[in-house]
Design a protein around this nucleic acid. Structure first.
Lengths: 110, 110
DNA sequence: GACATATTCAACCATTTAGTTGAATATAAA
DNA sequence: TTTATATTCAACTAAATGGTTGAATATGTC
């Protein structure tokens, strides 16, 4: 699967985004990382593997402990891809878009 | 499903990213949008619905034709979320990260 | 060696996803 | 009103996903 697919898919899960947020605060062992999650260690282990496959997380084995660390470059590519469309949220391209932008926008309330 | 989940998941598919790229060049009818894709019109119609559910695409019905248009705000939120971790690709946080960043990085070659 | 800890592997399950084909609906044109 | 066009809906399928439990592996400690 292409790199960008893996990165977007990895970030589509809230548990994995929490893992990213946690790792941004520093290197962490698998068990410690899993602690705050209301799911089995195995489930967290799978999420970590998804993040690893995308390149967002790197693993370093020290004895029986595995330390995980954030690796930014796939995140940079995600931002680079999406940023190409920045003008769609900065500019009013035509009157229709302006009209839509000023609507209550009910789909986005949740 | 939370908004951000839907936006990331929508962008995880290469067909849908092509649709976004196409819509960035202007409003398009469903049939015209589907033309370049090597899959059924129905499949493209489903992809459009995924993008719509995420708020990235808006639909405007004109008679029997449905015109599709890019809507930037979910993209902005994606960028905002990922950008929190910008320092992970701009800075060398410690010697280990620097070491990893300078490796051949084989996972990312595909 | 025996036990405990850290982590993954394997098998299973329910749900979602991405595609298909065929039928239905709505609008336009003849 | 008949026919063609634009699009979705419904049903199906195969594969992927996110979770579980139980067993395996590897390492550290007594």
């Amino acid at each position: 699967m292409p790199k960008l697919d893996l990165a977007f898919a990895a970030l589509a899960d809230p548990t994995r985004r929490r893992i990213v947020a946690r790792l941004a605060r520093g290197r962490t062992r698998v068990t410690d990382l899993a602690l705050p999650f209301e799911m089995s260690l195995n489930a967290v282990s799978k999420h970590i593997k998804v993040l690893e496959r995308s390149g967002i997380v790197k693993r370093e084995r020290l004895g029986r402990e595995h330390y995980l660390q954030l690796h930014g470059s796939p995140l940079r590519e995600v931002v680079q891809w999406v940023s190409r469309y920045e003008r769609f949220w900065n500019e009013k391209l035509d009157s229709l878009e302006e009209f839509l932008a000023n609507q209550p926008d009910e789909e986005q309330s949740s």
